[in-house]
Design a protein around this nucleic acid. Structure first.
Length: 195
DNA sequence: TCAATTTGACCTAC
DNA sequence: GTAGGTCAAATTGA
């Protein structure tokens, strides 16, 4: 698996085919369905059992493979996401309006489609190397459960850009769909896969 | 007192 | 125009 991921990434240094995006989306759908199925199967096995360890490994590998594919796509179409410093200055112009302050001028946000994202499905919100801090929650259209947004606690002091989205599964409320994105650490992971 | 969470507003991608 | 991601004031809890 490791070798496959590495080779996929190396090939991704060239321009992707026109239907690359459709291919990746199809893979993502298939992988998510597979992960959901495996997650359901996991419920019947005790934690640490060989079957469960194997299935968790498969889910992890799928997530990593998708991560590499996504990165190949991104590398083919370079983007700049540097927020304008001037934008933050605009936020200084605040006026008071009732309960909360309303900002004059435009805020600038880094947008959508989590770069270098990695989706996993777990029986509960798992602990990892990060310390997450919740910064938002939204009701999602056609979704029963709201989506929660987390970012790394160390963003202000260490500049950690990791973010995480967690949403309860529609099919099985006991499961949580977790999407993590960390531009800096993902690059390091990809480098390690090639060595 | 301070850090974490909540929640409505703001903003942008689609 | 709408859905969804982010901001930041208010609130809560240790």
């Amino acid at each position: 698996m490791r070798d496959m991921e590495a080779s996929v990434m190396l090939e991704g240094s060239s321009s992707p085919p026109p239907d690359w995006k459709l291919t990746v989306e199809a893979l993502i759908r298939g992988a998510r369905d597979s992960a959901s199925l495996l997650s359901c199967q996991l419920q019947d096995h005790a934690s640490g059992s060989p079957s469960r360890v194997l299935a968790e490994g498969i889910i992890h590998s799928i997530s990593r493979a998708l991560l590499v594919l996504d990165d190949c796509e991104k590398s083919a179409v370079p983007t700049t996401t540097n927020p304008s410093p001037a934008a933050s200055d605009d936020r200084q112009n605040e006026v008071s309006s009732g309960k909360r302050k309303i900002t004059c001028g435009r805020r600038v946000y880094r947008r959508r489609s989590l770069p270098y994202s990695c989706t996993t499905i777990t029986a509960k919100t798992t602990k990892d190397a990060y310390s997450w801090r919740k910064y938002g929650q939204k009701r999602i259209y056609n979704a029963t459960f709201p989506r929660c947004y987390y970012r790394c606690t160390h963003k202000p002091d260490r500049g950690c850009q990791a973010t995480r989205q967690v949403q309860q599964s529609e099919e099985d409320p006991a499961m949580f769909v977790s999407t993590r994105a960390d531009p800096t650490r993902t690059k390091l992971l990809l480098q390690s896969l090639t060595t």
